[in-house]
Every structure is written in structure tokens, then in C-alpha cells.
Amino acid sequence: MTAPAAVTVRRATVADAHAIAVVHIGAWREAYAGHMPAEFLARMDVEQSARNWTAILQRGDTDAFVAERDGEVIGWATAGSGRDDDPPRPRELEGIYILAKAYGTGAGQQLLDAAIGDAPAYLWVLDGNPRAEAFYRRNGFTRDGATSSHPAGSATLPTVRLTR
């Protein structure tokens, strides 16, 4: 039996926009089923998302990385100087998503390391997402007491901020 291919992480390019969109939507549907309205998740459109990702990658104002295994993008992460008006740390992990089939491969850790390393940083996470919060705790993040909400179709999702 052949061992699974190793995961590699690299900077994303505009050519990755479609693959990132596929992972973005797939990972949201996997991770947020039961948290977001089903109709909101069903309406997510890969082609529209790919156009959005193309614009993000062309602007270059965020650091974007992809994780690949066997030539397939299985995850992505973005980080930047912080989108909040008064960021608590100099760097924000803006997003990190891995397809469920790649859980346990180390892709998430490699993406986090590429995006923010061990620098002081912050992020927002869905309140009630224990898998994600446990991952961030293992990487030194703790809740700092800040909360917010994120609109998702007809729902509003509670989010909490984690810092290290």
C-alpha cells in the first residue's frame, strides 16, 4: 500500500483562485452545516467566489497560501495587518479552511505556520466551533472577551476573538 502524499504549502497565485473557491465553499458546507442556514450554503457559487478570489489575489493586500496534496488544493489561509478598526495584535489570521478529507494531514498547521508563524496575532472564530477553537488553543490562542456577529443569509452567527 502506498502512503498518502505529503502536504505542501506555498503562496497562492491568481491561477489558484478557482481551486481556493472550491475549497472555500466545500469547507464552509462541511464545517458550518447546522450553524448556517442550509439555503445560504446551497446558494454559494463557485464561479462568483472564484471571481472574488481573483480580485483578492490580484490586489495583493493579503498574504494567501494554499495547501496541496497530490496536486490538489485541499486548504487555504490568508493573513494581513488586521481588518478591525483597532486590531489587538499586528497580524490577523483572516481565514483558514481545510477540506474534511484532509483533516489530520497537518495541512492546517502548515497553513497557520506559513500565514502567521509564531507572531502575535488574532482571529475571529464561530462561537460553538470546538474543533477550530481546540486547534487555535494548541497554537497559543485564547479568547480575549471580544465578540461580534457575522451575517449569513437570514442568520447572524456569533463570533469570538482569539489572540496570542
Rank of each mutant, 00 (worst) to 15 (best):
P90A: 08
T78F: 12
T156M: 14
D61Y: 04
D16Y: 02
F40A: 03
S154K: 14
V66R: 03
T163F: 04
W53H: 07
M44Q: 15
T142Y: 02
G75K: 00
T142H: 07
A121T: 02
A5L: 10
D61N: 13
A114T: 08
T159Y: 14
L162C: 02
R10V: 08
W76T: 09
M1F: 11
A50G: 05
I74K: 00
M44Y: 01
A64I: 07
A5Y: 07
R83G: 11
Y103T: 12
E72A: 14
E94V: 10
T54D: 08
G104L: 10
G106S: 10
D118S: 14
G108N: 03
W53G: 01
P158V: 14
H24W: 04
T147Y: 02
I56C: 13
W76G: 14
T163M: 06
Q110M: 15
R51M: 11
A5T: 10
T142C: 11
Y32P: 15
G95L: 04
I74E: 01
N129M: 07
E30R: 13
G80E: 08
A67V: 03
Y136D: 00
R29N: 12
H18F: 12
Y32C: 08
A42S: 11
T142N: 06
W76Q: 10
A119E: 11
E92P: 00
D85T: 13
L93Q: 04
R83F: 09
G145V: 04
R29L: 09
P151L: 06
V7I: 15
A31Q: 04
V14K: 05
R138N: 06
W53Y: 07
G82E: 04
G104S: 07
I20K: 03
A5C: 09
T147A: 13
S49H: 14
R137Y: 09
V73Q: 05
D16H: 05
L93R: 01
G60C: 07
A119H: 12
V9M: 03
W53P: 12
L162A: 00
R83Q: 11
G108S: 05
A115Q: 03
R59M: 10
Q110T: 08
S81G: 11
Y32H: 15
L126Q: 11
G71Q: 02
A3N: 08
D113Q: 11
L99D: 02
G75L: 05
Y32Q: 06
A6N: 10
G140V: 03
A79N: 01
A102R: 02
H35G: 09
P88E: 05
D84R: 11
R11A: 14
E39Y: 12
Y103M: 12
G153Y: 09
M36G: 01
P88G: 08
M1R: 11
I74H: 00
A152F: 15
T78S: 13
A146M: 13
A38I: 06
R89K: 14
V125N: 00
K101N: 13
E133V: 07
A121P: 02
L112W: 09
G140Y: 09
P120S: 03
S49L: 10
E68F: 07
M1D: 09
D118E: 14
W76D: 06
F65M: 00
P87H: 08
R69W: 04
L111I: 02
P130N: 15
M36Y: 03
T163H: 05
W53L: 05
I56F: 08
E72R: 15
I98R: 00
L112F: 07
Y97W: 08
F65T: 00
